[in-house]
Amino acid sequence: MINGILFRIRTGIPWRDLPTRFGKWQTCYDRHRRWSADGTWEQIFRTVQADAGTDGRIDWSMVSVDSTVCRAHQHAAGARKQAPQKPGKRTRPLSTAPTRHWAVRAAA
């Protein structure tokens, strides 16, 4: 059962495509969901990690931070930079009223 759950997580296949050697896919799915909800997976992880730590199989001096988890907002990429303003240059149009091209054409 656990091997079936780990196989599905590792490969990313849909639950229904789980090979029959791991048992019924629905049973694997139900157990995975139940264990995720009640904290069984965290308890298993902590136990395995503690055993490995006491046996010296974990080198706690090595720390690796993956930069792919630091993501910018979708609007942060590719923004145009404003040109530096020159003294004495006007940055706004004279009128703040919206231009109505149809009104100008109708009057002409």
Rank of each mutant, 00 (worst) to 15 (best):
I2T: 06
N3T: 05
N3C: 04
N3I: 01
G4I: 00
I5L: 00
F7R: 00
F7V: 02
I9N: 02
R10N: 08
G12M: 01
P14V: 01
W15V: 01
W15A: 01
W15C: 00
R16M: 06
R16Q: 09
D17L: 08
L18Y: 00
P19Q: 03
T20G: 05
T20A: 09
R21D: 10
G23R: 02
G23Y: 02
K24E: 09
Q26N: 13
Q26T: 13
Q26A: 11
Q26W: 11
Q26F: 10
T27L: 02
R33H: 07
R33C: 05
W35V: 04
S36L: 06
A37F: 04
D38M: 05
G39E: 04
T40A: 02
T40G: 01
W41D: 03
W41G: 02
W41R: 04
E42F: 07
Q43A: 06
Q43C: 02
Q43T: 05
Q43G: 03
Q43D: 04
Q43K: 05
I44E: 02
F45Y: 11
F45D: 07
R46P: 00
R46N: 02
T47V: 07
A52M: 05
T54N: 02
D55E: 10
D55T: 07
I58V: 05
S61Y: 03
S61H: 05
S61C: 04
V63N: 04
D66F: 07
D66P: 03
S67V: 10
T68W: 09
V69P: 01
V69A: 10
C70S: 15
C70I: 15
C70A: 15
R71L: 15
A72I: 13
Q74G: 09
Q74M: 09
H75F: 08
A76N: 08
A76P: 00
A77P: 04
A77H: 13
A77E: 11
G78L: 07
G78N: 10
A79F: 13
A79H: 13
R80F: 14
K81P: 06
A83C: 13
A83G: 12
A83L: 13
Q85W: 11
K86P: 08
P87I: 09
G88Q: 07
G88E: 09
G88P: 03
K89N: 13
K89M: 13
K89S: 12
R90V: 12
R92K: 13
R92P: 05
R92E: 11
L94T: 15
L94K: 15
S95V: 14
T96D: 15
T99Y: 15
H101A: 11
H101D: 11
H101C: 09
H101G: 10
W102V: 13
W102G: 11
W102S: 13
R105E: 12
A106G: 10
